[in-house]
Design a protein around this nucleic acid. Structure first.
Lengths: 278, 278
DNA sequence: GTTCCGCATGAATCGATAG
DNA sequence: ACTATCGATTCATGCGGAA
């Protein structure tokens, strides 16, 4: 039976099941922030940390199958604290995914500049998350020029004509790799970024829990795909990844088990249900 | 046989052997940056990544024994790239150390603002390292007030008259949590830091190559110890940890297998060989 | 005394070449 | 085939000398 791929749509269903109907090697970039262990119970059912790896492995197996050989999988994840310790399910997951055939190419750090407030006697606020990069082969697409940033303070301090306000505003843009007035940068020296991304979390009070800021998938989409490529988010939630893909003229596929989230995502994307054959 | 502890000294020898002669529960804080896998071949012999875990476990076993129940172990480490992938020895080490009885309390990120330059087709510059916090029990000493930092907005609003150079210097102090002119901060709002530390590596030191900047051990020493406590670095190298401990009025013990590094460290510390019984 | 600029210096990584 | 060595690439920082 010929398998079908629904492009530019948000599909309601369990990721493992939905992905099983996708053909092989059809996705250019997977970027997702899966439900964290034992959190968001109301919407996803709450996977216990001890069960997290065995829950995720069937999905990552499908992801490996549907990803093109030169594609990339970016997994946003962070381990919970349990009994005063960081749980080990994330690092166990890395080891198990490598056994499935994934290459663990890199670990980016997402530094959340405005992380959740709070105070505990034995731990500071958690202001970073992992962005694990997995690949199917060592030869994957990467367009580094798309995410270049202005050089650091060393160079900026020698640009006398900039006002302090301008400089501050520009610095805040450095993290995302691109602002709305890129023209300001055209005459500035540019450098390649590092594997630490400085991005503030979006604290919008929508009906859904915002997993990550739009700038995050946008950055990886520009880095790892061409226009017209297919971007998949197997836990699309409110559709941030899909929206970033659409804005960047990429095709998107979102999958989520929660029908209400799917509706919210479709509204944000301004689409009904479209189907296309490949 | 009663075991002896040499306080305020740099001991030349293999860590596992030297530590075996320490009494139980005598160290308040261990902070170290062990030789990274397959690097610094000339001075340490170069441990192959595949052998790293089995090489380190006997040492971590001794460290667990000599650490006080309310003490802390901070391990600075980062995995190498091998065959296009991040090697897994660090995350395997975490799992194995937990089997030894260590609690993996937290993972701090050291964001190296001035990381090594370079360009590759499939990877950006690596600008962060892990600072793994291990403990013997859930009830460890922690003095959060000692590392509070000024809140973010002050630079823009209150210090407009400062030159860019001055401001840059002040900002660089923020990462360490304390500068030489703390008086400047006294009237500013202070906040607790997060688990991301922004520190530049010290790159222009002539005689010795320090693994990490002095501000790094200084920060953890203030956070996890009282004055008079004993700080151990089982891979002391040029003695940066010991120097930070001495400046903070803590006792120190450094161990290094390289006699020349031991001499450099002793010179920096301004000591010969002192022995003290406990 | 400031400010500005030049320069050396890194816990790096890849791909090609040589044994 | 598999390992060891080498050249090319690249940029934030702090120091020292100059304006």
């Amino acid at each position: 039976m010929k398998k079908l791929l629904s492009v530019n749509s948000i599909i309601n269903g369990d990721s493992a099941d939905v992905l099983a109907n996708f053909p092989d090697d059809c996705i250019d970039l997977i970027i997702t922030s899966p439900p964290y262990a034992d959190s968001r119970k109301k919407t996803y059912g709450g996977i216990h940390p001890d069960d997290y790896v065995s829950w995720f492995l069937p999905i990552s197996k499908q992801l490996l199958r549907v990803l093109k050989p030169n594609g990339t999988f970016v997994l946003n994840i962070k381990e919970k604290v349990m009994n005063g310790e960081r749980h080990t399910y994330v690092i166990e997951l890395i080891l198990e995914m490598r056994k499935q055939g994934w290459l663990w190419t890199e670990e980016f750090i997402w530094h959340k500049k405005n992380c959740y407030p709070g105070k505990w006697p034995n731990r500071f606020r958690d202001s970073w998350e992992r962005l694990l990069q997995f690949n199917k082969s060592r030869h994957f697409k990467m367009y580094q020029d798309e995410v270049m940033v202005p050089t650091g303070k060393w160079a900026e301090s020698r640009l006398d004509n900039l006002s302090e306000t301008d400089r501050t505003r520009d610095e805040s843009r450095v993290g995302s790799g691109f602002g709305k007035n890129i023209s300001n940068w055209l005459d500035r020296p540019m450098a390649y970024p590092t594997n630490v991304l400085h991005m503030a979390t979006e604290c919008s009070n929508r009906n859904h829990s915002a997993a990550f800021p739009e700038a995050l998938p946008e950055w990886f989409i520009r880095l790892f795909t061409d226009k017209g490529d297919v971007v998949l988010d197997p836990f699309s939630g409110s559709g941030t990844t899909a929206l970033a893909a659409k804005k960047a003229s990429r095709d998107y596929i979102g999958v989520d088990s929660n029908p209400e989230y799917c509706e919210i995502a479709r509204k944000r994307l301004g689409v009904g249900v479209q189907r296309a054959l490949i």
